[in-house]
């Protein structure tokens, strides 16, 4: 499968949630509190895209479809796209760009603090999501930097669960999914370590092995 066939339609599909909310605002189908619906909806979609992005690698590994890996960057950038819109709705419709109030809010409210940290961690990942940055940083350092996506996943779920009033069922579902996707990585690491300890990567001896018998 050639990813260049999939990317354009997938790009359109990824914009569907935004289109849905934009249409909902126009047609007044988002209920009594459309601003809250949009703010929360965009946050939920940032988290959804984060889960989708984190699913790419396991899916590629177990399906053998190597081309899936080529979609990861675009999906990851949609995490940043929806997170940026989510943050914008907060700054605009919730705070009306009252910067002193926003600063106070960030310092005082743990769930806002965590949300801001999460967004701040997304910025360098989005900024280095190009071939130039990979070349400049070197593959190894680039990969180390991008491992912060796991922390982002945990913080995003924490941000969500600290926002809800009493019913933690939805944040718990997200926590479970992030847990499975992160747990997989831990499991792979352990397997890899065991392989290394078992000497799977030691150089094979060259030539023939000759047994030497010792006469008594």
């Amino acid at each position: 499968m050639n990813p260049s066939f999939i990317k354009p339609p997938l790009f359109i599909v990824c914009l569907a949630p935004l289109a849905w909310y934009a249409w909902g605002v126009q047609a007044d189908t988002l209920g009594a509190n459309p601003i809250e619906a949009v703010t929360r909806g965009l946050g939920t979609w940032a988290l959804n895209f984060l889960l989708i992005t984190l699913t790419v690698t396991p899916l590629r590994k177990y399906s053998g479809w190597a081309w899936l890996g080529r979609l990861r960057r675009m999906l990851g950038l949609f995490v940043f796209f929806y997170a940026t819109l989510h943050l914008t709705t907060y700054l605009w419709f919730d705070q009306f760009f009252d910067w002193p109030a926003i600063a106070k809010d960030i310092l005082k409210r743990p769930f806002i603090t965590v949300g801001m940290i999460t967004f701040a961690l997304l910025v360098p990942l989005a900024a280095t999501s190009n071939a130039f940055a990979i070349r400049k940083l070197g593959g190894r350092r680039w990969q180390e930097l991008h491992r912060s996506v796991y922390l982002i996943g945990l913080l995003a779920v924490l941000h969500y669960s600290w926002m809800v009033k009493a019913d933690l069922s939805k944040p718990l579902v997200y926590a479970l999914m992030v847990g499975v996707l992160l747990g997989l990585r831990v499991w792979w690491r352990l397997q890899e370590r065991n392989r290394q300890l078992a000497g799977a990567y030691l150089p094979k001896p060259r030539g023939r092995i000759i047994s030497i018998a010792v006469k008594k």
Binding site: N33, I35, F93, D94, F96, D105, K108, R109, F111, W162
Partner: peptide, 19 residues
Amino acid sequence: VDHPRWSQASERRIGEFSK
């Protein structure tokens, strides 16, 4: 007196844009 997790200084009247 704020809720420990959010401010109570303002509110959104349902149907209104500004707080």
